[in-house]
Write a protein that binds this DNA or RNA. Sequence first.
DNA 1: CATTGTCTGTTCATTCATGCAAAGTCCACT
DNA 2: AGTGGACTTTGCATGAATGAACAGACAATG
Lengths: 300, 300
Amino acid sequence: MNEQTMQWDDLRVVLAISEAGSLSGAARRLSLSHATVFRRLDGIERRLGVSLFVRGRRGYTPTPAGEDMAATGARVEREVLGAERRVAGRDLKLSGTLRVTTTDTLFAGLLAPLFADFRRMHPDIVLEVAISNQLYNLTRRDADVAVRPASTPPEMLVGRRIADIAQAVYGAREYHENHDAEQGWHGLDWIGPDAQLGYQALEVWMQQQTVAAACHYRVDSMLGMLSAVGEGAGVAVLPCYLADADSRLVRLSEPLAELSTDLWLLTHPDLRRVARIRAFLDFIAEAIIERQARLCGTQG
Amino acid sequence: MNEQTMQWDDLRVVLAISEAGSLSGAARRLSLSHATVFRRLDGIERRLGVSLFVRGRRGYTPTPAGEDMAATGARVEREVLGAERRVAGRDLKLSGTLRVTTTDTLFAGLLAPLFADFRRMHPDIVLEVAISNQLYNLTRRDADVAVRPASTPPEMLVGRRIADIAQAVYGAREYHENHDAEQGWHGLDWIGPDAQLGYQALEVWMQQQTVAAACHYRVDSMLGMLSAVGEGAGVAVLPCYLADADSRLVRLSEPLAELSTDLWLLTHPDLRRVARIRAFLDFIAEAIIERQARLCGTQG
DNA sequence: CATTGTCTGTTCATTCATGCAAAGTCCACT
DNA sequence: AGTGGACTTTGCATGAATGAACAGACAATG
């Protein structure tokens, strides 16, 4: 290769630095050491005879040449990811790695035993679970499958709506054993989501019930809310599949139709023919259907 | 990087094998050893868990997955070449390498001293000259500049038409000192281009002059024809800038308007702002204009 | 002002990719 | 059948790329 030409991987390095704004950030993004990224950029700029970044207090800022090269890198990245998915999409073996993302509540309250069952059925499939309340980028293959609540699925993904997630008001059993729904919610301490958790629909509901003013305990996760209710710190709206499994809690209302959400099972269109992903989607869908009652909040 | 993902350079290897049809051919195309290409492909197929080529008697034939990956590689290659040209296009230094392609006759008979002069003017520019009668692919950056005869410039290139190349009939001086053009061409032995040289216009002219039948000496290069005429083996149509400089030869006709061709100076649009390329184009254009008379075949 | 965290830049040891050389296979030609 | 050329595959030595460790700079925080 001529010394002066750019190597295809050069674009990937320049793109990463451009996006991260620093060598250390780019190193994390590329799973390389920052020393390697430092040397790679140095080599690229020397070979091409052009400066791609301005070094300053704010980190690495791309020059016009750097921006052009990063833009090319972004287009190449889309091509490579597309090719990767299509190649992976031809994979007919029930082995290899499968990355699934879901929320902490779904994982702890519902999915963990299902994932374990799946692993027992398919010992050659490596399951990597990413717990996150952020929607992972399935286009970038940060995950292969997402199991998460949503009103509508994101564009560019395919999937199935597999269940309703019912929610109701819960309190600690020892304080609310004989709670009469006719009493209303006034006079109770409430526990709610903080701004970080960003649960707008619940916030609206509490306003409508005129109990938002009594909400002096805010937590940044559903599991945290569950624990707080279990300690008798107040009452809260919680998903039935999560709260009904906790013997410390008692349900104080019927499931709230206006706070019901859909549970979706999502993947990228190019991956739906991958054998191990198809097997996983089918398994989880069937297992969830079997637990329909639990998710709907049916009691008995 | 996840073991299962494809590296961007993987696409380049798969593209090269797909285009070449063999590991050896791909190795030449990539400037790698065949052993390296063998191991690279092996690594790619193992990492992706898919077969990209069928090994057979006819060499390496891509599978559908290999075709898809090679198609992606071709698109990535265009992106990379474009980025490379644009980066190179920002180069304002009068240093670095400049690759120029031209024909053997132009080089030997006209350009060699001009290139030497340019080198003396710009000692920091490395000049690489590729002598070829094939049109190099400037889009692929096989060369940066082309100096060559053409009727019209190729698409996608920019350039200037810098001269007419006049041609006339020449013979050895010792045999044709007192040749009278009124005698016509009959009774003379002719030297012409072979099928390899592929000079269709000259072939047509000899047919029209009804001397093709007397052409029993065919050579695969203009320089070869020049030598043969110098040895007194016959007469031939030769470029005036080439033949007039050889004291062994005498011109036997006026320049033949119907065999005049244009001399073009060509480069890629993205490269025309590169300082060293611009300097070279300007220098050669000016030097050729100063030698207009020689190229037109003006005598005196 | 001291401490902490993040980042850049350098040196050294280790690992990995590469080319060289060799051996083997296959096909075309004499 | 023998020969030569093109190609594939493997083993070994070498050099290049990488990460670990270290040092220094800078900014935010208490």
